[in-house]
Structures are given as structure tokens and as C-alpha cells.
Design a protein around this nucleic acid. Structure first.
Lengths: 118, 118
DNA sequence: GTTGAATATTCTAATGCAAGAATATTCAAA
DNA sequence: TTTGAATATTCTTGCATTAGAATATTCAAC
């Protein structure tokens, strides 16, 4: 079993990488499949996949498999610490072009998981 | 110059280690010299010194030299992200015995920097 | 069955810390 | 000028993580 402070450290380990922050920023909007994330981030597929796996391993994300696609979402009942930092991330997204561009690219594609992925 | 998101990543890098969290928890109480930190944490001196240097290097702490002693304090005008997480740390300190014990040991020593260090 | 899209994993090399032991530096006081 | 306390640095070793390239897996559709 993991202590509370160990859990917080795990959250911070996930947050201390720009690539992972960019993913969390997109998932704040709602669940997304891997290929949409990859397109919005303009990053190579193995890189995104490994960042997602890292955050799943640390309990920040969960995923569900829909035949060929994997839908990622923020874990339910998050550590309050994570919730607070996702709010901070929202503020950050308003001020940093990297996050804005990710959101803009995401808005440009059809991200309804119901008809993933054309 | 450092972008805003890089600055946030630097903050998270500092927060993702339990030893550094314990130091920040103590410095929330006010400035402290290295030897008091070392006593309150019950950790070897080089370890504490390196953790302090790490956080100085990332802009979270500043230090002033008073002859033989170095007084560490939280940096002024902190990143709002850091301020928010120090609040979270306060909540965490109520719930995790590690932080409580640090505070208890700190309370047991005279920490007035004016008569450092007897 | 074969193809192709989506995703995951493996391998390698490089990096960044981390701990611990030892040593260096600084400076007041004896 | 030597001593000792406080602090910083260096060195080594090991671990965790990262990127990139390549490959493997899964599964629907043809």
C-alpha cells in the first residue's frame, strides 16, 4: 500500500514533464483516444504511448479498450492534489502558446470517441 | 529566459522528491539555517545541502550568508503554482506523520536565526 | 487468410538524479 | 595560527527515465 505522501510524489513525478502536462491539458477536455492525442500533440506515436503508460502506471489515467482503439481519461476520484494542479494547468494553458496550439489542433479534428477514428 | 511552462516544470521537478517536500514543509514556517534543517530532518548534512542547492538552482529558495551560517527561505514572488502547492503541502502535513515529526523536532530546537546556532 | 490502422513493447544509448563517503571551504573563536 | 563548526563540493556507483528506431500485437475489414 502506498502512503499519502508517496502518492503525492507520484503525482508530481507525472507533472514534471512538459509532454505529460500537454497530455493532461488535452484530457481535461474529456476522454480521447491515442491517435487523436498523437495528432493534436504532433508527436511520434511511441513517445505518446509511453507517456500515457507512465501516467497510467502512476494512477493518473485509466484507459478502456474499444476494439482497436484505446480511450484515455483522467482517473476518477483523483488525489485532491492532482485536481488542484489541473486547475493550475488551466490557467497555464491560457498563457502558454504550446498548450493553446495543442487545444487548437484538437478542436480541428473530430474527437467523438463514438466514431473513432476516421 | 525561461518560459512559463518551463518554470512550472522546474517547480514540479523540485516537488517530486519526498526529501525536498520535507524541507519545503519546514520552510513554510519561516527561514531556517542549514544546521537546523539537518537536525529537524535527521538526515546527513551533504544530503540536505544538495537538496537545498537543487531547489536554489531551480529558483524555489534563496539563501543569505550570515558569517558561518546559511539561512534559507522560500523565494519571494513565487510562481503561483508553487504557492498553491505549498498550501496543499499544509494539508498533507496534517495527514502524514513524516511531516508532523519534522515539525515536532523543529519545535524542540531554538530556531531564531538571530542566535544561530548554539 | 491478408492487409492496414491503432497501439504497445523492446532495444540501445544518453541523461539526470540519488545516496554515501570523503574532502574542501569558510570563518569565528580560542 | 590552529581548531572546530557549518556548509559546500567532489567522486563513485546505481537507478530511473528519456528519445528514437524498430518491431510486435491486436483486431476489424476486405
Amino acid at each position: 500500500m502506498e502512503t499519502l505522501s508517496e502518492n503525492c510524489v507520484a503525482v508530481y513525478k507525472c507533472l514534471c514533464d512538459l509532454g505529460r502536462l500537454r497530455i493532461l491539458n488535452l484530457l481535461r477536455q474529456g476522454p480521447l483516444c491515442g491517435c487523436h492525442l498523437q495528432v493534436a500533440l504532433e508527436e511520434p506515436q511511441p513517445k505518446v504511448s509511453k507517456q500515457l503508460a507512465y501516467m497510467k502506471r502512476h494512477g493518473l489515467l485509466v484507459s478502456t479498450r474499444r476494439t482497436n482503439w484505446t480511450i484515455f481519461r483522467l482517473a476518477e476520484g483523483m488525489n485532491p492534489l492532482l485536481e488542484e494542479n489541473l486547475k493550475c494547468l488551466q490557467d497555464l494553458a491560457f498563457q502558454d502558446p504550446v498548450f493553446q496550439q495543442d487545444l487548437a489542433r484538437l478542436a480541428g479534428i473530430n474527437t467523438d470517441p463514438a466514431d473513432c477514428c476516421d
